[in-house]
């Protein structure tokens, strides 16, 4: 009884069943040449999977999840304002399309800027950027947290800039991103930025931001009102977190830390 190459391939791919499969299997069992061929087919599949499966294990870039989260948040917002909005997903608004294209352009620009910076390591473009963040942070925090800027509050003024203190600093030190919301504060991502400092994106009930580790303190690189916690609605939370993650993506060197890396670096005290 003969077996065609197509039949053998179909068996290897799990396309045969019942009698057909039994017939081909019997023929293969009786013929060492066919058996070797089937073995090779299976080996090929294993080799391809061995090469490509690890890609599916890598952390997904924030830019992608963020893109989807923004759309979900925008549509959720539409759903809340429009009464019985007819199929809000059917026709995306032109503004949104432009927005996606703009986001892509921004990403490319950021990549170019990083490339330029990498080629000319002496040009301190990050110094400017840090300063801009610090200024923005002071303005936002000054307005929001004015009364909390005392010794035990979540933020203190240091010579290097605004730093996390009290419970915020302790949470930044210890809390895993996988822990979710603990006492109104969630860690969204941890990463290393250009230059090697560790940074974390956090979302709290009142404030969200990016804090980067410098010596023993968490300097606040960026902050924004809202972003997490039960009191803010989905749309606000989604867009604030999206903005923070987009900002983090621009600062990041390589990929965000995965859970195991994050745990390891917490153990080492972020050094």
């Amino acid at each position: 009884m003969s077996v065609t190459p197509e039949e053998l391939m179909a068996l290897a791919d799990g396309e045969l069943s019942g009698e057909e499969a039994a017939r081909v299997e019997a023929a293969i069992a009786a013929d060492p040449v066919l058996a070797r061929r089937l073995e090779a087919e299976r080996g090929l599949r294993a080799a391809l999977r061995g090469r490509l499966d690890p890609v599916a294990q890598e952390p997904v870039p924030l830019a992608l999840t963020d893109l989807i989260a923004r759309t979900a948040a925008a549509d959720a917002g539409q759903g809340m304002t429009g009464k019985a909005a007819p199929a809000p997903a059917a026709a995306p608004s032109p503004a949104e399309v432009v927005d996606l294209a703009a986001a892509r352009t921004r990403r490319k620009e950021a990549e170019k800027a990083r490339d330029r910076a990498a080629r000319r390591p002496n040009v301190p473009i990050f110094a400017d950027r840090r300063m801009a963040f610090a200024i923005a942070a002071s303005l936002v925090l000054g307005l929001m947290l004015g009364s909390q800027l005392h010794r035990e509050g979540p933020v203190t003024q240091t010579r290097a800039g605004l730093a996390a203190s009290g419970s915020l600093a302790r949470t930044l030190d210890r809390q895993l991103a996988s822990a979710g919301d603990v006492d109104g504060l969630r860690m969204l991502a941890s990463f290393r930025r250009q230059g090697g400092d560790y940074c974390r994106v956090f979302a709290g009930t009142a404030t969200s931001g990016i804090a980067c580790r410098r010596e023993d303190t968490w300097l606040l690189e960026r902050t924004m009102a809202g972003g997490g916690g039960p009191s803010s609605n989905y749309r606000q939370a989604g867009s604030v977190q999206g903005d923070m993650l987009a900002a983090a993506q621009d600062m990041m060197r390589g990929d965000p830390l995965d859970a195991a890396q994050e745990r390891a670096v917490i153990e080492k005290g972020w050094r």
């Binding site: 490509l52 890609v55 599916a56 890598e58 992608l64 759309t71 959720a76 759903g79 997903a89």
Partner: peptide, 24 residues
Amino acid sequence: MRTHDFCDQLTALLPRLRRFARGL
């Protein structure tokens, strides 16, 4: 269709989409 479901499903697909993209 609920956009939320669509977005959740799409997000869940991302690892596989990245693998397919690398293969292509």
